[in-house]
Design a protein around this nucleic acid. Structure first.
Lengths: 182, 182, 182, 182
DNA sequence: CATGAATGAGCCTTCATTCAT
DNA sequence: AATGAATGAAGGCTCATTCAT
């Protein structure tokens, strides 16, 4: 319709529209035609870029998980509290956006339906958690793994229900203090 | 199949069947006729006991939240680590059941759709968390609230992905130690 | 439930309730359970007194036609304008009631579905009309039959939309004058 | 069956099919899938052109009323008996078709359900009737209005039960003579 | 690439009817 | 007689998906 709509731009616009619509209605109550409307394209076009609605769901779901935050903090080679700070900041930045926040919830509930999502969540909860634990506490230990779960869980709690009386930085700082107090 | 069964029994049977089916398919991909089949009743009967599928969803969703665990531990008058142990045990017991575990995920994603669920989750994340924090740390403090979020978050993480190498009791004990280390 | 509910009383109460409900919703959009509620009886009881909903519909439909008015005027042996006055008064009395008025419309539309109603309407429009025409004009004539149709049609028009500026008596009197002016 | 037909053609074909089916079964006993079959389209397509079955019902119902006949005769500027002849011919032509005849009955019974139909019938029975009366009798009078109701009512009676021994032209001619005899 | 008419499966829900109590 | 739980067929409608244009 407009010249600058190059292929990737349109696909991206569809994904972004889908994120907004999915976050409001959930993956299965969001009709494709609403996504098309939100993206300003025709319904048919969505099926040109995505084989099926499920493919779009999975694309969106993947983007709503915090995997890339953890990966980038791991790659940056940080250790100790630093890596926790990195992850904490990343979470706060990403999930400040209510669309992402709501999407995260919807995505978690997909786990029982799509293997692809289940695997991502597995990786997140097992390997990544262990990796980060080692980086923080030096070596693998039960206590370290438990602490990391408390860390991730704590972040998630904060994200889902941002308490008005605790600012982001305060929360992250306190959380890190608590779980590294061991 | 015809005739009178005891009223409450039938309703309960429908709810239990719905829990199983919802946990497998999610609330919106689970067709009512599957629930009926699972419960051994006719499709029509479900609408005799529930005005709509949504009413059934909400009934099931409410049951899958851990509110009653926290309430009962609060009511028992426990303090300090004791109340955390109570809650920890309660969580483990309830969510050992994979149906409940899966349902919890689905329920959390309902928050953006149903006020009733949003309110329950609000109460859980704000008031209840603060109440428990006071019971544990004596008085209201930022650090206490953060710690409690780490506690609940940690429990949730464990529930969602039960790591094979950390048994329930060990996890809860360690988690309590960590967050009360302040 | 109450002692004085003798058989015929209950049946009659159901019919009267059905008339009210049918007049509001139409025969096919009126659910049986609403009739039961309106009559203050259980849904099951309606099927004790009537083999099916259709039987109840036909019973109510028959009562809403003006057959018995015409019959009683014919039987009373009146002639000329007198019989028209008799019929006119009968119509006004019966269809002053908005329930009957609305029911008449619904009943007329049943004709294509139920033979029994079609027959009644046939009798009304053919034989009865001719009989009355003879009583009024002395002998059978085309003009007489046309006039009688104008009479019945005129009455029906008045009934369906009672114009505020023409009282019943005035209407009937004028109508009779017009069609006997031949 | 797949591909683009001309938009208005398809919609019109659905309406015509609906008229046939509604006339046979009545508006509420006619299932949408029968209309689809009759129109040679899929069930879904009906809901592409009409928001709901009700919308289709109202579209069909409007077409079955004689409003446009009266309007066109009024607009043609005719007076006296001429306008009655115009209307008479119009009625005969339109309701010679048994589908239209049956539909008229069904439509009249919709009045208590849909405002839109009630309004059309109001206009027909009040304003239009008065307008025609003035055209015929020169000025507004009670007698004129009564006569017009006798005219319209007479036409409707003839339509609903076409007596074999009175041909259309004869009926209309006689009817006009009778009601203008005043 | 892009559109939107067309399809058809499937879902939620209603409702007449039955029948154990 | 009377109740209301239970049934099952059927209906309206939504929606992912296809495909002619």
């Amino acid at each position: 319709m407009i010249g600058y709509k190059e292929k990737e731009l349109v696909k991206e616009r569809i994904i972004l529209a889908a994120m907004r619509v999915f976050s409001r209605y959930g993956f299965f109550k969001a009709p494709v035609h609403l996504i098309a409307k939100e993206a300003g394209v025709s319904k048919g076009l969505i099926f040109w870029y995505f084989r099926s609605k499920q493919e779009l769901i999975i694309e969106v779901a993947k983007r709503s998980l915090p995997l890339e935050i953890i990966d980038s903090c791991l790659e940056s080679g940080l250790n100790g509290k630093k890596i926790l700070e990195c992850i904490g900041k990343g979470y706060m930045k990403k999930y400040k956006n209510p669309v992402q926040r709501s999407l995260l919830l919807h995505t978690m509930s997909l786990e029982s339906l799509y293997k692809e999502i289940a695997e991502k969540m597995n990786s997140l909860c097992e390997e990544k958690t262990s990796e980060v634990a080692e980086r923080v506490f030096g070596k693998s230990s039960i206590k370290g793994k438990v602490a990391l779960r408390a860390f991730f869980g704590g972040l998630m709690c904060y994200i889902l229900r941002r308490p008005k009386d605790i600012p982001e930085e305060t929360f992250v700082k306190n959380l890190i203090d608590i779980i590294t107090c061991i």
